[in-house]
Structure formats: C-alpha cells, structure tokens
Design a protein around this nucleic acid. Structure first.
Ligand SMILES: [Mn+2]
Ligand SMILES: [Mn+2]
Ligand SMILES: [Mn+2]
Ligand SMILES: [Mn+2]
Lengths: 217, 217
DNA sequence: CTTTAAATTTAGGTAAATCTAAAAAAATAA
DNA sequence: TTATTTTTTTAGATTTACCTAAATTTAAAG
C-alpha cells in the first residue's frame, strides 16, 4: 500500500523533473510541498528503499521507472477528476485543483478507466495540461510561455503553468481564458510586462502573468 | 480537521445505533472495523474529548448531536458516490462499496451538493438504503426483513442490510435483485430457510439470506 | 453471595510522517 | 585556498492510530 504522502512526493518530484534533466534537490521538494527539508530527507530514504527514486546523499533524486509510472498515474487521475468537476459538475477552473488533490488518491484502477470513458477520453484538463493515457503516454503539446513571444507575434491561450485559485481568478477578470487569441503589441522594457491586443482592446499584463500563460502560436 | 479514522468510527457508531437505543459497546465497534478493543477505547477517549460522542468508562457510547451530524454526512456522501458509480460509470451494485469507502472522505461540501444535483437528488442508493438530504433528513422507509414475513405474504425486494461483494453476487445469481416481486410459499422449520416464488419459479433461500434482504409488503 | 467469565481499560510499544536544533557536506566568495 | 554561506543530513521529539499483555470492572453462573 502506498500512502498519500508517498504519492504526493512522487508527483512533486515528477513535476519538478519536467523539462530539466538534472537531479531534484531536497530544498526544491521541501519548498513545493511546504514541509521542512529534514522531513524530505526522511522520505527520500524511504522512497529510495522502495526503489521508487534514485537517491544518493547530498546528490538530489530522480524517479525510477517504477516511481515515474506511479507519478504519471497520479497526474492522470488528478487531471481526469478536474475534467469531471468542470465538465459534469459545472465547477469553474479555479475551483477544482484542491478537490482533485484529494480525489487523485482514490485507489481503484477500474474507477479511473471508467471515469476516462465517461468523460470521453479527454486529452487535456481544464488548465490545458495534457492527460496521460492509460499506458502513461502523454501527448507533449509543448506550448510556449507568453513571455517568450516577440513583439507582433500572435497566439492562442492554451494553458497555465500555475494553478492557484488567485491566479486563475485574476486571469478570468482580465478575460485571459483558454482559447482566447492574443497579439503582443508591445513589450515594456521597464518591468517586462506586455501589451496585448485581445477582443479588439488593449490590455497590459505583468511579467508574473506572462511567465505562467501557455501559448500556441 | 477530521481524520479518516475518526470519520470511520463515527459512521460505525451511527450504523450500530440504528434501531436500538442502547449504548454502543466497545467490542461491537472493534468487531465491526476489525480493530482491537484497546484501540477502540483510545479513540473513544479522543472522540469524547472532541464532544462527538458521549462516553463513560465501561458504559458504552452514543453520538452527540454534532457527532451524529458528521456521521450522517459521511453516510450521505457514501451513498451518493455509490449512485454515481452505478448510474454514471456502470459499475455493478456489488462493486461499489469499497470505492465509496474511500470517496466518502473527500471533504468538499460544495462537491457533495453538486454531485447530488448531477445525480438528480436520488433518495436511495443501489442497495436500497435511503440517502440523507443536505439537511441530514432521511426518509425512513422502514422496510421489513424477509425473515419476518409469514407464509403466503407477498413483497418487493427493496434493499439489503449486508453489503459484501460475496453476498450481493450470490443474490445476483439467485435473481434476487432490487424491485423483484416475491411470495413466501413455505417456511422450512428445520433450518429457517424460505421457499419463495419469483418469476413463476420456486427457489429456496437460506435463513442467512432472509435476514439481510429488505422487503416492502 | 461468591466465583468465574466476559468486556473494557491501562500500560507500554511500534510505525508513519512530521518538527526543531545541531552537525556535516558542498558550493560560493573573498 | 581559506572562509563563509547554503544545502543537506542526523539526532532527538511529537502526534496519530494502531498493537499486545496485564489489570480492572462488570455481568453471569452456581
Ligand atoms: Mn490541478
Ligand atoms: Mn489542472
Ligand atoms: Mn456501501
Ligand atoms: Mn450502499
């Protein structure tokens, strides 16, 4: 049996690993799950004994094949439940993350597969994140972050890389929701903010926002 | 925050309290959740401090108003999730209990209410058990157990009072499913079994079964 | 009423997951 | 290359939810 705690650690390590292929550091994990570094070290020893991560003192960790499979399975469940909450129960996209944090630990594999079918095999969640299929494959859509766009470039908002309710509600207020088309009309050197044209009006968005909005060009 | 363990204890005490109005004994709880009596005593002290149960050493326990409200809320969630699993995800009635045991602990109140609406405010679960409404009211349908029927009486199967997969699958094989009409054609003194007429054929059912089948006359 | 049996509680322990404070190792700066 | 800072680990505690074995209380028999 895997505990919620173990599953959460594996998922965090998985998320921190995406993109970079360096080892994940104790402090990075500690910060992400708001737990003290000493506690993280304890859990690393434990996950290492279970052969779910590769760990050598002071060197950081990486997921083993088995650990990665578990992590992907948790991510799959998290995102499928988010789709369920938004599509079937009419939650807003900014309300579902915390509930999915609990639902992702429901263990039945049969349940996940039936849920997937019930939702018609969705490929992305309400925040634009890809949903791994039942074999763990995920279509790496590889969107680009808004702050990488140049002046004059057009794009469509496809997702977010930060899931806090505060951030999502802020996007909502600005009208920056999934599927919206935008054009970068200016880049403000002073603070790194962008001027966007959207729905024929211009708005200014902070650098903090541009770093967390995923765009398809 | 309430732990899963606390919620499970409250639910068990609630179930054991139904019908009788005596205090619930330590051993009864221990047996039901397959835990040692000494551990139950520990938890009783804790729940008592939290004012969720009335407890005096050696005397057994009862739920306080607050404890009862929590218990009913858990039962409500359990049964709503079972409806979801059967009606929406096409699980069989004998497959849903264990999954609901996990789902009942998902904390969001908003989720429960939306689920209730999504399911169209069902009043009973797949096993015929009543679902408390959001104020904790439950239509006490008060069905009678099959072993209380007399020779010649007719009835309709409305529910079960035992939820194990083994029992439910056995019922399925015998054709004893919710909604079926039966007539008690004979009572066998020797072993307490009944002879039933159902779908124009006669079958014999053991006393063990008759004690766990709920009937509307 | 005693004696015996059953139920319950206490005492003392374990494993998981966390914490704080202190020690050790690695990385960075002077 | 030595000193300083940062990162990580160890040591020692705590809380929760269990356990076993022994003591105590209550209930049942004789
Ligand atoms: Mn989420
Ligand atoms: Mn998401
Ligand atoms: Mn059930
Ligand atoms: Mn049920």
């Amino acid at each position: 049996m895997r505990s919620f705690a173990e599953e959460n650690y594996l998922k965090i390590i998985y998320h921190l690993s995406l993109g970079k292929n360096a080892l994940i550091q104790t402090n990075a994990i500690a910060e992400k799950i708001k737990i003290k570094a000493a506690s993280v070290t304890d859990m690393m020893r434990k996950l290492s004994e279970k052969k779910l991560i590769n760990y050598q003192k002071y060197q950081g960790v990486s997921l083993t094949e088995q650990g990665k499979n578990i992590a992907i399975d948790i991510v799959r469940k998290h995102r499928l439940w988010e789709v369920f909450l938004v599509d079937k129960l009419n939650f807003k996209w900014d309300q579902v993350h915390d509930i999915a944090e609990e639902l992702e630990h429901i263990s039945s594999g049969e349940l996940v597969e039936r849920l997937d079918e019930f939702l018609n095999f969705p490929t992305s969640d309400p925040h634009g994140d890809p949903i791994p299929d039942k074999n763990g494959k995920l279509s790496s859509l590889a969107f680009i972050k808004l702050n990488k766009l140049e002046k004059g470039q057009k794009g469509i908002i496809m997702g977010v890389s930060e899931h806090s309710s505060a951030f999502l509600q802020h996007l909502e207020r600005l009208g920056l929701t999934l599927g919206k088309s935008i054009i970068v009309t200016d880049i403000v050197d002073f603070d790194g903010s962008l001027e966007l044209e959207m729905d024929r009006t211009k708005i200014n968005v902070s650098r903090e926002i541009t770093k967390n909005l995923l765009i398809k060009i």
